[in-house]
Design a protein around this nucleic acid. Sequence first.
DNA 1: TATAATTCATTAGCATTGCTAATTAAATAG
DNA 2: CTATTTAATTAGCAATGCTAATGAATTATA
Lengths: 153, 153
Amino acid sequence: MKHRVAKHGPRDRSVEQVADRLHSAAIHLLRRVRKQDTATGEGPARLSALSVLVFGGPMNLGQLAAAEQVRPPTMTRIVTGLEKNGLAERVSDSADARRVQIRATPKGARLMQRGRKARIEYLARQLAQLTRDELSTLGEAVEVLQRLLQRWT
Amino acid sequence: MKHRVAKHGPRDRSVEQVADRLHSAAIHLLRRVRKQDTATGEGPARLSALSVLVFGGPMNLGQLAAAEQVRPPTMTRIVTGLEKNGLAERVSDSADARRVQIRATPKGARLMQRGRKARIEYLARQLAQLTRDELSTLGEAVEVLQRLLQRWT
DNA sequence: TATAATTCATTAGCATTGCTAATTAAATAG
DNA sequence: CTATTTAATTAGCAATGCTAATGAATTATA
C-alpha cells in the first residue's frame, strides 16, 4: 500500500495539472481557429457534420447525430441547413423507409476541403514558430491524445 | 537555398499534419468535457466569462468582451444572465459613469471552483489511463502550446 | 395474422449565444 | 457650448442545443 500511496499522490497532482492546462489550451486554440472558419459562411455545427460526411462517407441521420454527439432533432436541423445550401443531401434508404441516408454533395466536399485547407494552413503558420523539438513533442502528444480519445468512455 | 528547400518540404508537411490532428483532437476533447459542465446548469459562454472574472478579477464589460472574444452586445446578455442567477454583479464605475464593472459574486466563485474541479477531475480520470511517459509528453506539449498561444497573432 | 411495442426521423417550442444596426448616456475635443 | 467619440444597451436576426410530442415504418408477440 505504502509505495502505492507514495506513487499516487504526486502523480495525481501532475495529472490534474496537465488536465487543467490541456483544457484551457484547447479552448483558446479552437477559439482562434474558429474565426478562420467563418470565411466559409457556414457555422461550426454544419462544418463539423459535413466533415464527418466527407471524410467518413454517407450515413443515417441517427449515426451522424451520434458521431457529432448531438440529439437527432438537432441533427435534423443541421442537415436541413446543409441541404438548403447544397452541401449535403438526403437519400431515402431502400431497405428501411424510416431511415434517411445523408451524404455530402460534390460542392460540400469541395467546401470542406477548402475550409480544412485554410484552417490547417492558418494553424500551421502559427506552429511554424516552434522549434523542431517543440513540434516533435507536440506531434507525439497529439498521437497520444488521438489514441486516448478513441478509447474514451 | 538548396538545403533550405530540402529541409522545408518535409518540415511543412509535418507541421500541417500536426496542425490537422491537433485541431481534431481539441474539438473532440472539448466536446466530451463540455458535457460535464452542463451539471452546473449554466451554458458554456457564461461559464467561460465567469471563469475570467473569478480568476482574472473584476473588469469592465468591454474588457470582458475582448477577453472572451465576443462583441459587447453578446457580453451584455451573458452578464445579464449571470446576474440573474446571482453569479456576477454590475458595479457602477465611480470615475466614468459610462463604464460598468462586472465582478463575480461569492456564489459565482464557488460555482466556478466546483465546476472547474469536476471538469478537471473528469479529464484527469481519462488521462490516468496514460503511461508515465505519455503523460509526460502531453505535459510538455501543453506547455509548448501555452507559450505559443501567448504570442499568437 | 393482427396488434402492440419499438425505432427513426421530424415538428414544435424553448433557451442560449453569436452577430449587426441603432440608441442612449456620458466624456472629451474643438 | 456644441460636436464627436466612447461604452453599454436594446432590438432583431440566425444558428444550435435541448425535451416532448407526432408520424411513419419495422419488429415482436399474442
